[in-house]
């Protein structure tokens, strides 16, 4: 395997950071109000319109989760709640307050767990195509089985146009592919059984007490809009919106619309804050 080059490409903006004793890759960008972006299994794409859009609005923190990309694996972490504890430690170590937490897909699950654990340092929560919740019966599936759907068919569930997929093997560096393999294994480790959900999350989401927006692609084939609506319904006061011409990754397929929804949601939040003062 000597033909694999594991050097980090020069155009990657990640820096190494120690958080809660764990060495992770972190992208920091922008200025202003703090925002924590929790990525999906497909990783962080710093040059994507969604990412640069967030960096233009916030002081953005985008960490690679432990065990994902090139971040250190903590052997003993065994469920997504361990990652939630990790991110609570991150917020405390950085002394961040009023943080907008945005999570996409698997990262949306982490974001929901973070908020369920404590909202003390959070200002708002945005879930995009999140997994993590079980809403239907025992012989029904809420979340498409990525490990049992032929690749081409699964891509058609994820994207209105699979050409929008950010991870194209023919354009990725070895470093990125190596990281993707680690991300997939860690996601399996944490989300295999129960499949991509935590049975007790349903209970704990009822105590989330910050403004929450759930954004779903109108044509999401992985987690349906009905699932997204049910997800939002477990969080008191949460809003649910759909994005046309987008499937499971609306921030990838419709970044401008998704950013606009976030802008309007947060404007409403600060409007309510002003009214309360």
């Amino acid at each position: 395997m000597s033909s694999i080059d594991l050097a980090r490409p020069a155009d990657r903006p990640e820096t190494r950071a120690i958080v809660a004793g764990v060495a992770i890759d972190l992208v920091e960008a922008g200025r202003g109000r703090p925002c924590l972006l929790l990525h999906d299994i497909d990783g962080i794409h710093p040059s994507s319109p969604f990412f640069t859009g967030l960096a233009g609005r916030f002081r953005l923190f985008a960490p690679w989760h432990p065990g994902f990309g090139h971040s250190e694996t903590v052997r003993q972490f065994h469920d997504v709640r361990d990652l939630a504890i990790f991110y609570q430690a991150f917020l405390k170590e950085r002394d961040l307050d009023g943080v907008t937490v945005i999570g996409t897909g698997f990262g949306g699950w982490i974001a929901a767990e973070v908020a369920a654990m404590s909202t003390d340092r959070l200002g708002a929560l945005v879930l995009i195509g999140a997994v993590g919740l079980k809403v239907s019966g025992r012989d029904e599936r809420d979340i498409a089985d990525m490990h049992a759907t032929p690749f081409a068919a699964y891509e058609a569930l994820e994207y209105v146009d699979p050409a929008n997929k950010p991870n194209r093997y023919d354009r990725m560096s070895d470093w990125e592919m190596w990281g993707l393999a680690r991300s997939r294994e860690t996601a399996a480790h944490l989300g295999w059984k129960p499949y991509m959900h935590n049975p007790s999350l349903n209970h704990w989401l009822g105590r989330v007490d910050i403004p929450t927006l759930a954004i779903w692609g109108e044509r999401d084939g992985v987690t349906s809009p009905a699932y997204g609506e049910a997800y939002a319904g477990t969080i008191p006061g949460a809003s649910f919106v759909t994005v046309p011409d987008a499937a499971h990754h609306p921030h990838v397929e419709q970044p401008a619309r998704t950013l606009d929804l976030i802008d309007r949601f947060l404007a409403g939040v600060s409007g309510r804050e002003r009214a309360a003062e």
């Binding site: 490990h147 093997y169 592919m177 393999a181 997939r184 294994e185 996601a187 399996a188």
Partner: peptide
Amino acid sequence: PGYMPPAGNVMWM
């Protein structure tokens, strides 16, 4: 995911 180590996966990709 995990059945093969990262090196084997990179070769596949």
